[in-house]
Amino acid sequence: MGGHAPVTNDPDADEVYFQYEDIDQQQESYVVGMWAFLVTEVMFFGALFLMYAIYRWKWHTDFYLVHKQLDWQLGGLNTFVLLISSFCVAMAVHYAQLKKPKQQLICLGITLACAFGFLGIKTIEYSSKFEHNLFPNHSFVYADHKVTSYGMEKKDVTGRAAGVEHAKKVKKPQEGDPNRARLFLSLYFAMTGLHGLHVVIGILVIGTLMIMIARKSPLITDYVPTEMIGLYWHFVDLVWIFLYPLFYLIPK
């Protein structure tokens, strides 16, 4: 069970798992299953987008002012990197369908490189946020106000030692209500963080697929595994397509 049991009554068929009648049924089941999973992913991020939409609608001026803390050039670069990776996955599926494993591996390799590149750029962005105390934990400071989830402390922290040091590090002027800044950055870290987690999972999955293809694993008999992983990766790209304008490019 679970292994490859050739179906006795259909000698021409490719090998299929025991629960399926033939290879068509197996592949169609995979496609339906994958799309059902993607629907759950849409709803997963959809809830976050709903939350974002409500808060953006409510506090649009502050969100506009706070979003300037984000680096739209780095974000744009990341968008482009993910676009390339998405394109390469599409090409990998294309080559898999044409049964050209070499080109397929090259395409997947570029995808993997792009995924690491994305995470690298993300790390640069995140670390600058940490440095400026913009990560919404207990040390969050915005516009010289210490803000916790109970709201900001009325005291100005500039006078304190930490505050002075903090003021030196900040490059960009911090405008807008510090409370809303914390809200905005909470959403930013929650959404990009979960997206980043999906990228990490994508790296693991694509890496595994590449190893299996390179080793000519018997589990990879056709293009369908590549296509399924491709669908996942396109979804990751899709989320970023919305995240980028929503966080980095807020119009006034």
Partner: peptide, 17 residues
């Protein structure tokens, strides 16, 4: 996340709901 990092997306003081 709220409990671990205290991010505050549902916190009314920050403008959350």
């Amino acid at each position: 996340f709220e409990r671990v990092f205290a991010i505050g997306v549902f916190s009314p003081e920050l403008g959350g709901d």
